[in-house]
Computed example of a mutant assay.
Amino acid sequence: MKALVTHPGLQHSHQMAQALYEQGMLRQYWSGVPVRGPGEPVPWWLPPGYRARVREVGIPQALRRHPMWFPGVLKLGLNRRMGLNRFMGLSHSAYAHRIFHLFDAWVARRVEVLRPEVVVAYENSAMRTFEAARRIGARCVLDAPSVHRVAAAAMLDMPPDWYQAEIDARKDREVELADLVITCSEFAAQSYADAGVPASKLRPILLGASPPGNVRRRRTRAGTRFLFAGGLTTRKAVDLLQQAFSMVRARVPEAELAIAGGGADPMLAATLASLASTPGVTLLGALPQSLLFQEIADADCLVLPSRFDSFGMVVVEALACGTPALVSERVGAKEILQEFPRAGWIVQVSAQSLYDRMLELATVPASLDDARQYASLAGEKYTWARYRRAAAATIATLC
């Protein structure tokens, strides 16, 4: 059985493709963001933003294809000063989804020529691809990186978008066509089950992390250093973090908070301004992965208070570095902390709950030192190698 893996960007699709290649099951891997093999240079002509996103895989060039036109036009369209989107009158979300849909159509036209036996595609770029796959009798696997759209709308209270109805219809059709829906956690899988997706279709597989071998903790504690890493958005609850840390800092003046991330939500302008002016806060901006891992290793505790996250990749990255994590009850990676309860803490989605736990950790930092060994144990289990074994075994059930 041979499978096609296709994604307009990257996310963790290269790990799925690598998993299938390791088992002799990969027909092709098509992704908008390129990957490189061991010893291959990063293409010199790639813009810096793309160079930082290139990942190394063991997949031969002959099995890879990277139509960079799609992410390139996406980036140009969303540019604040000269973006194409200004002339189209679409929201950023609507424009981005248009590009995903174009990629979906591009893949669909080629599926019937390639004729794989299985197609693995990703949310909001899979509908046409799956329809073409069905015409040739191929099995369809939806690798869903988020919670079900109904749960997302309920948890985030998203404002209506004229384009949202089309996006929702496409997502529903993708789920309908899929033989399997792979989610990043039981938390995410339950959101699909709650929306009426049959349990027989659902396969949760927790993601993994493998930090660079040269990452070592360098920092000795002066004050407790919390780290947030991710998009500066409402979904990630940056507003709740700002409220909680400002109260912690008032009680523990030596406490610190580092913020690593970009993609600031315009609706959070006041929150981000407050963060920038809060004593003890350091804004690191968006970091390449190698530098982010070092910041994680140097932190005393990762904080991810999301209103919802189907997984929360940075959590397992923190555990892989031996850094304990504090997450909300709506972060899928909480399942790792439930398995390794001494590796971190789970709180409700509220500024008060976050403040209470952060204050305790800042006041009694010995608990953070105790948690590091258990974080390392969790990180040793939840690796990319483990994910790849589980992913390949899941796809093999379609035989």
Rank of each mutant, 00 (worst) to 15 (best):
V111S: 09
N79W: 04
F245M: 11
E56W: 09
P38N: 15
H66G: 12
R64F: 03
A258G: 14
H97Q: 07
P67E: 05
R225Y: 01
S246Y: 07
L287A: 10
P204F: 08
E117D: 14
G231E: 14
P279M: 06
R330T: 04
K334R: 15
A17N: 08
L84N: 02
A276S: 10
K171G: 13
M247K: 06
A392V: 07
L206Y: 05
Q11K: 08
A299H: 03
L10T: 10
V197N: 11
S210A: 07
A237Q: 13
H92W: 07
G77L: 00
A133I: 11
R342M: 14
V141W: 01
A52S: 15
S367H: 11
Y163R: 02
Y29P: 08
R149P: 05
L232W: 09
V238E: 09
G137Y: 03
G322M: 00
L4T: 01
E131N: 07
S31E: 06
V113T: 14
I205L: 15
R218Q: 07
M155V: 15
A152K: 09
F187C: 08
W106Y: 10
R134M: 05
D104F: 10
R149H: 12
I346P: 13
M313S: 12
A105H: 11
V119N: 08
A299Q: 03
H12N: 08
G263V: 04
Y29I: 06
R342P: 00
R221G: 03
P204N: 02
A62E: 13
M155P: 00
K2V: 09
P324R: 04
V238S: 04
V42P: 04
L156W: 00
A94C: 09
S125D: 13
G32H: 01
R80S: 04
R27D: 11
Q18C: 14
A165C: 01
Q61I: 02
V347D: 06
A209D: 03
E112K: 09
I205T: 03
P159K: 00
Q61K: 05
I336F: 09
D356L: 12
P341R: 10
Q338G: 08
P279L: 15
R216H: 11
V73Y: 03
D298Y: 01
V175H: 09
G332C: 13
P145F: 08
H14W: 05
G24I: 12
Q28Y: 14
A152E: 14
I59T: 13
Q294M: 07
R330G: 03
L26D: 02
Y387F: 12
N214I: 01
A169T: 02
G213M: 11
L302C: 11
V5H: 02
L202E: 02
P324Q: 04
A209E: 01
